[in-house]
Simulated scan of single mutants.
Amino acid sequence: MASKSQSAERKARIEEMRRAERARERRNRIITITASAVVVVALVGFGGYILNKESDKKEQQQAAAKAPIKDEKSWDVKKLGRNHVTEPVKYPMTPPVGGDHNQVWMNCQGDVYKEPVPDVNAVHSLEHGAVWVTYNDKASDADVKTLGEKVEKTPYSLMSPVKEQPGAIMLSAWGKQVSVESAGDPRVDQFLTKYVQGAQTPEPGAACTGGMGAQ
């Protein structure tokens, strides 16, 4: 009788252990499924946040591209001409925003020139949709550095000094120009957003490399 009793107890313990094991497995599965669900929800939420952020950024850029720029000047470039010439051109504004120009453009793939560049070549870059950032002695070294770093990150832009210009810092596109006093002026980013390969571009998509480099 003792042997049968011990055998029954042993079977009961084994069955209890099996039940406990099954219970642990169920708990582990629940924990794993719950953790996976939390991760998925977090990833979906993060992905949605990124998409919304990118969408907001795109909307802001589109709004900036449409908004008028304070104190911006515009010219009827049809009256300025777009012929290729070999001789110097006397432009009616400094820096020029359009007109006849040399057949070779200044490289404008974020190129920062430490010395003045020929107007007739820079104007050709504007025809390709570039924004030309210029400065004179009134601009601080810090502003020049900040602008240079911004231009280097901006395809279809170039930068150079223009001593004779009236404003400390000026941004020019084909037929468009604005003057600012500091690199921190919000119109700098607004002008770049609006006119780099903007609607004013006579030859959108034309090259900004393979032209004239640093002198």
Rank of each mutant, 00 (worst) to 15 (best):
C208D: 06
A23P: 04
G129K: 06
V85D: 13
A122D: 04
L43G: 04
T34L: 10
A12T: 14
A199P: 00
G99W: 03
A122E: 05
E152V: 09
S140H: 01
D143L: 08
K176R: 15
E87G: 12
A23M: 08
L126K: 02
L80A: 06
C108W: 08
G198A: 04
V144G: 00
N28S: 14
G45F: 05
E72I: 04
G48V: 01
K153W: 00
T146S: 15
K150H: 05
V38L: 13
S157T: 07
K138M: 06
H84E: 12
E25H: 10
L192D: 08
A168L: 08
A37T: 14
P88M: 13
S7A: 15
N52R: 09
V162W: 07
Q177P: 02
Y195K: 09
A42M: 04
M159D: 08
A173L: 09
T154D: 06
N121T: 14
S125K: 04
V178E: 08
I33D: 12
D185F: 07
F46Y: 08
V162K: 08
M170A: 15
D56T: 14
V40A: 12
S125I: 10
L51K: 08
M170Y: 03
S172H: 06
V104M: 12
T193S: 10
A139E: 05
A168G: 05
H84N: 15
N102R: 05
S140N: 07
S160W: 00
A67C: 12
K145Q: 14
M1Q: 10
L147M: 11
V120T: 13
P204T: 10
D189R: 00
R24K: 12
P95F: 08
Q197R: 11
Q109I: 00
F191P: 02
V112S: 02
V97E: 06
A63D: 15
M1D: 10
Q61T: 04
E9Q: 15
P92D: 11
Q109N: 15
I14P: 00
K4G: 10
L43N: 03
K90C: 04
M106P: 02
T209Y: 11
V180M: 04
G129P: 11
T201S: 11
Q62W: 06
Y156P: 00
H124M: 03
Q190I: 00
E16F: 06
K79C: 03
A139R: 01
H101G: 06
L147R: 02
K138T: 03
Q62Y: 05
M1S: 12
